[in-house]
Design a protein around this nucleic acid. Sequence first.
DNA 1: TATGACAATTTTGTCTGAGTAATTATCCTG
DNA 2: CAGGATAATTACTCAGACAAAATTGTCATA
Lengths: 249, 249
Amino acid sequence: MGHMTTHVSFGRSRPANNVLRLHGTIARDLGIAITSGSYQPGDLLVGEVASSEKLEVSRTAYREAVRILAAKGLVESKPKVGTKISPRSKWNLLDPDVLAWTFESEPDLELLESLFELRDIVEAAAAAMAAKRRTKAHLDAMRDAIDRMASHTLATPAGRQGDQDFHRTLLEATGNPYIISLTTGVQAAVNTTTMFKQRDRPLPRDPVPDHVRVFEAVADGDPVRAQSEMSTLIRLAFKDTPVPQRTKR
Amino acid sequence: MGHMTTHVSFGRSRPANNVLRLHGTIARDLGIAITSGSYQPGDLLVGEVASSEKLEVSRTAYREAVRILAAKGLVESKPKVGTKISPRSKWNLLDPDVLAWTFESEPDLELLESLFELRDIVEAAAAAMAAKRRTKAHLDAMRDAIDRMASHTLATPAGRQGDQDFHRTLLEATGNPYIISLTTGVQAAVNTTTMFKQRDRPLPRDPVPDHVRVFEAVADGDPVRAQSEMSTLIRLAFKDTPVPQRTKR
DNA sequence: TATGACAATTTTGTCTGAGTAATTATCCTG
DNA sequence: CAGGATAATTACTCAGACAAAATTGTCATA
């Protein structure tokens, strides 16, 4: 063969509705492999030059993928030493991509509990802040979102859109960009992974009344009640969330 | 001139204790420019081909820098349209690098308040969790850290190390990797930017007694008290934090 | 023998030139 | 006027070469 690089199944695993370029695909595949525990913390990443087998791609694409992984703290590369997997304590665990990769491959219940624990803390506090800072426009948007959730149910895209709009509007009412950034990233990851549920599972409870209670507390400007209602909503959502499953392959 | 690219001051601004490669330097410079508001949301990033002036670097280094920025949500690039600055709502605001870039250039008091608001929420909750889950080893480490903080004071590196060790140990006691990841990233950014304070400012209050009160609540296994003591500690730290200043140039 | 300087080796970093693919805008045709 | 083929632009990918940095091994000297 003329060259280094051989051949690996990149491309097949490329999602259909594709926005990813080749480097993005490689970053994703390697990211899933790393977060799933296929590598140990000091391991060398598939060498850039020749190495064992694997990698039917040019150095350009590979290096850009490594840059992405390094930007998220998953790997670190130094001349002569190689590109090594960093310990999980250095990973940007809350990076949206890292979250997505983690829950695409790892049905680790303990980790999921930790994530919901954080959601509980932050989103409940966000509800309290929203109760103090919301405007009439926020309330109107939230009411409309709940209406859509109720009329379409979460089984439909329109209903799920209402659910997301409700939470997004509540977050925006906090006016805190960091809370917004944190929570939207987490929600996106959770939503995509929990979208494949509702199979062989007990019927989840109707989420609308819970949302209404949060809404009323926020509308009343009652931060304490908003916080506790949101907290129960999160906990109930967790109970209805299955352990993420491998969805492909 | 034979070619695209010209010349810009990269390299001069390269930090002394350097781990950054060229692409890292470019990503940092561009990241600071973006977070500081030098670009507007739809603006094209300095084009990869020729463009106006700037950029005495190869496409390789430039592209890898763009990959880093894109990985953190600051830009998005598509064929034919170019690499455009994303709206701030898409940025990974809590990414450690983005935080560092933000506070290296932007003395925005409102944003700093938002960050401390989040810290207050999360770290106070973390203290409550730590009160319930801490082991004896955690308590020993925290006590030692406070001792070092007290004997060396925050004016010395050893004292600041004690401060950081205290908070790190408390976080580890939560056992929640997401809370650890979030908070360590935020703390790192805040620490580096607030290290240049203590100039023309009122003498900050002695932080040791506040830390002791948090420690005692955690040692007693009292989550409610631990939470409120940590909350006051954060608020006091905020009062002693100056608006970040431009530190170079 | 121990120690220091030096050289070889290995891996990432950087540069360049060429060609491909995707997306937008334009133009032609119905 | 509408819709589809076409063109133009930009990022994407590949490949080859060389530079820089850090580890390792070697050798000479005290």
